[in-house]
Design a protein around this nucleic acid. Structure first.
Length: 470
DNA sequence: CGACGGGACGC
DNA sequence: CGACGGGACGC
């Protein structure tokens, strides 16, 4: 959804031929400089071995009808076009004297732009990369599609922190095309614009990039947090199990699986701490008190302070932690502020007394055990809209919603207490609504409902509009 | 030498 | 009662 694929003007449907969008998929149309004597059939014969052809157009002079010696061949698949381009460039068709020059066609509205080393445009992918991935990880992942010439992870110039995106350069257009078509959707791979070029339009909604002062919330690129001292777990970068799914493996998930252990109400603390204290240090500090379930720096709270969420599996531990750590100078000269989060103390007392057995310490309703996630490539079967009464860390939400199988993604809108959850299974989404709507997570109330269609989508299902007939 | 036709959804 | 993310390269 919302990628270039949906912008093709194919009406869908059967029967009638569609006029394919020239740039869908990208780089799938070839521009051929040839002999005036070449016919459409010549090109069909020569190029159809490489894959399905959507359109062949031999350009003629408007008035004289004479061939201009150029032609366009549009393939269905980028990789087929790539193969054809590489193999047919410089070849001749039949007994023609002239060798073909085969290039990837430029966008319709920009006309001829020969100049830059042609290949530059076709061999590089621009991808979204998790901040913890190394260039070696990416090279290994993308080498399965072809020879990788280089990987570049873009970093902040000041501190060297990764910016979350980068480039993979292949040795051939064909390899880049295969990687583009087959790599996981989480990379959001697109062909990279050549270095100096002005970027094309961003997305169909917003403007290119409005700087949001809510970016570098966690002081030091400490990205995601894996619970206790558990070492970073950079391990198997095999298939899908890297940092997008990191919360699958952490202590919290393990904790949630211990569903048979009766536990008391969870208790959350809100902590303000100097931004020179990192995630790990903060965890160690609060882990002095037994019962720590969760500890995460959430956002900036002031120029030199962060706000963190700390969760214990019982109220006594939380109260004890508050008594002992509130006002502590850590480090020297920087006081830690600890207060009870989410629920009023009255409510806390109630839950303290009301010790019914719960399946876990995070949510006030029973939850099934953690289920497998869907891959980011899977199709969204249902999207939910969630509203929180206060912020919760993404990893907690992900863990909660992964109690039903086929979770694809959870995200909160920046600066708001609402967001979206995507499932690959309608049934899971419905169960999540039934179970979680109105529940509390760490004392934060949550509403869960079906999301409205985003406006302006070409939604091809559901709606009452769009009866198509023939 | 080398850059753009044909045809036309469904409100 | 809250509604749509992320991603352009030290010229």
């Amino acid at each position: 959804m919302s990628d270039y694929r949906s912008q093709s003007r194919s009406g869908g449907g059967r029967g009638g031929q569609e006029y394919s969008n020239d740039d869908d998929p990208p780089m799938s149309r070839l521009f051929i400089i040839c002999n005036k004597a070449h016919t459409e059939e010549d090109f069909r014969e020569a190029f159809s071995p490489y894959g399905e052809i959507e359109d062949i157009w031999v350009v003629k002079d408007k008035h004289t009808q004479e061939n201009k010696g150029i032609a366009y061949v549009k393939f269905s698949k980028t990789s087929d076009a790539a193969k054809a381009q590489e193999e047919m460039n410089g070849k001749t068709i039949g007994k023609m004297d002239r060798t073909l020059k085969v290039l990837v066609a430029a966008n319709r509205n920009q006309g001829s732009n020969k100049s830059e080393n042609e290949q530059e445009k076709y061999v590089r992918l621009f991808i979204v990369i998790p901040k913890t991935a190394t260039e070696e990880d990416i090279r290994e992942e993308f080498s399965q599609w072809g020879d990788v010439e280089s990987v570049t992870i873009v970093k902040e110039k000041n501190n060297g922190n990764p910016k979350g995106f980068g480039y993979v350069r292949f040795t051939k257009f064909y390899y880049a095309a295969v990687a583009f078509e087959n790599c996981s959707a989480k990379y959001k791979a697109v062909f990279a614009e050549p270095k100096g070029s002005t970027r094309t339009q961003r997305d169909q909604y917003g403007r290119p990039s409005e700087d949001n002062p809510l970016y570098s919330s966690s002081g030091r690129g400490n990205s995601n947090f894996n619970g206790g001292g558990s070492s970073s777990g950079g391990g198997g970068s095999s298939s899908y199990n890297n940092d997008w799914n990191v919360s699958q493996n952490n202590d919290m998930a393990a904790f949630l699986r211990m569903q048979n252990v009766p536990v008391a109400q969870p208790s959350c603390l809100e902590v303000n701490v100097s931004n020179c204290v990192n995630q790990d240090q903060l965890w160690r500090l609060f882990d002095i008190i037994p019962g720590l379930d969760y500890c995460q720096i959430m956002r900036e709270h002031g120029p030199r302070t962060n706000e963190a969420l700390v969760v214990y599996d019982n109220p006594e531990a939380a109260i004890y932690a508050k008594d002992k750590l509130h006002g502590l100078e850590y480090p020297m000269g920087e006081r830690i502020i600890v207060k009870v989060n989410g629920m009023s103390s009255a409510r806390m007392d109630t839950s303290f007394i009301d010790k019914r057995t719960k399946k876990d310490a995070i949510c006030n309703v029973p939850l099934p055990p953690t289920q497998p996630l869907a891959s980011p490539d899977d199709q969204v079967a249902q999207r939910l809209f969630i509203v929180l009464s206060a912020n919760l860390p993404h990893s907690i939400l992900k863990n909660i919603f992964s109690c039903w199988s086929g979770l694809i993604d959870v995200y909160l809108l920046p600066n708001k207490n609402c967001g979206y959850v995507k499932y690959a299974e309608v049934e899971s989404a419905q169960l999540a609504i039934r179970t979680l709507n109105g529940a509390e997570i760490c004392g934060t109330k949550i509403k869960v409902m079906e999301a409205e269609e985003r406006s302006g989508s070409d939604g091809d299902d559901g709606g009452r509009k769009r009866l198509r007939r023939n």
